[in-house]
Design a protein around this nucleic acid. Structure first.
Length: 302
DNA sequence: GACTCGGTTGAACAAGTCTG
DNA sequence: CAGACTTGTTCAACCGAGTC
């Protein structure tokens, strides 16, 4: 479920997030389930995926918790992390059809672009906001986003109004700083100024989505299985067995989402059965066996 | 290996000047 | 207006050196 609810995203504007905190949240969004929960968040995975140091991982986890953006439960050398407010299970088919579900998709190539990772937090938020405005209701993003220069500046930057009072923009930066951001905006958007009006068009190579809806679920399931294997110390799980398990879980997505079903427990039980004749756990054969896993899974959900 | 503390530093910031 | 170049200041992100 590579989606961030729009109101969740909007709340980031006044949380004083750092660049790495945003990267942290984006990586979570790639793997979270429909409830906004990412199980088995492992610091080494985050270091690789978010291009951050170990220290930064712990710093971000702590600061984001303090800022009320995530909540975290300790696992075994990893964490179950919830992106607060990002629960999509409350929506039905009708809600989607009626366009009631407003969200920012993180499947766009833009979020895999290495340059994006190097941007400062306010630059990231600005790019994401413009991306959202441009793509909202326009799946192909074909139409340019038009806004008067005056309104654009007032929306994002702090300005002095005619009566002398100051107004704060979304980004809480000076007009000059906003002006400087244009250099990077032009990397992602075609920008032109005509008759005092800006035209923004997201460049097509960034607008492409690397992931369709089926793959979105697949990525989440894959991550769940990977995390459950790590928690049970299964090194190099057999690819074929893993694939069989993932296929079944994908077809039974709703049951997997049930928070009382813990894949890690099921895999532990599977390993216990495989090794029931070996009393010493240190000598256990830690491997995946799809048929047995599915049996245990059925027992767990019944 | 997982995790934390303390200290360093490079980069972004506001604000000023100046150019086409 | 859009942007280049500057300066002093601040702090995000990381590294090294630990502990458990």
């Amino acid at each position: 479920m590579q989606r961030i609810k729009l109101n969740v995203f909007k709340s980031w504007f006044d949380k004083n997030l750092t660049g790495k905190e945003i990267d942290f949240l984006l990586v979570l969004s790639f793997y979270q389930d429909k409830r906004g929960v990412t199980r088995g968040v492992y610091y080494k995975d985050m270091m690789r995926e978010g291009k951050m140091s170990a220290q930064t991982f712990y710093d971000c986890k702590k600061s984001l918790t303090e800022k009320g953006v995530i909540s975290s439960v300790e696992g075994q050398d990893d964490y179950d992390i919830t992106l607060i407010g990002n629960d999509f299970t409350i929506y039905g088919k009708e809600d989607y059809e009626e366009g009631k579900v407003k969200y920012l998709s993180t499947t766009y190539h833009l979020f895999r672009d290495p340059y994006f990772r190097t941007l400062k937090p306010k630059q990231k938020l600005l790019v994401m906001d413009l991306l959202n405005i441009q793509m909202a209701g326009r799946p192909n993003g074909v139409n340019a986003y038009r806004i008067y220069r005056k309104n654009f500046i007032k929306k994002y930057a702090n300005i002095k109004q005619n009566d002398g009072t100051k107004s704060k923009g979304l980004l809480d930066i000076t007009v000059r700083t906003l002006q400087k951001y244009f250099k990077l905006l032009k990397y992602y958007f075609s920008v032109s100024l005509k008759n005092g009006m800006y035209f923004f068009t997201l460049k097509s190579k960034f607008a492409k989505s690397g992931v369709n809806h089926t793959t979105e679920n697949h990525i989440t399931i894959q991550h769940l299985v990977k995390a459950a294997c790590r928690r049970n110390k299964i090194k190099d799980p057999d690819a074929k067995e893993q694939e069989k398990i993932e296929k079944v879980l994908e077809n039974r997505e709703k049951e997997v989402l049930n928070q009382f079903v813990n894949l890690s427990d099921i895999i532990r039980s599977m390993i216990e059965t495989i090794n029931e004749k070996i009393p010493d756990p240190r000598k256990w054969n830690r491997r995946l066996k799809a048929t047995l896993f599915i049996k245990k899974f059925n027992e767990a959900v019944s």
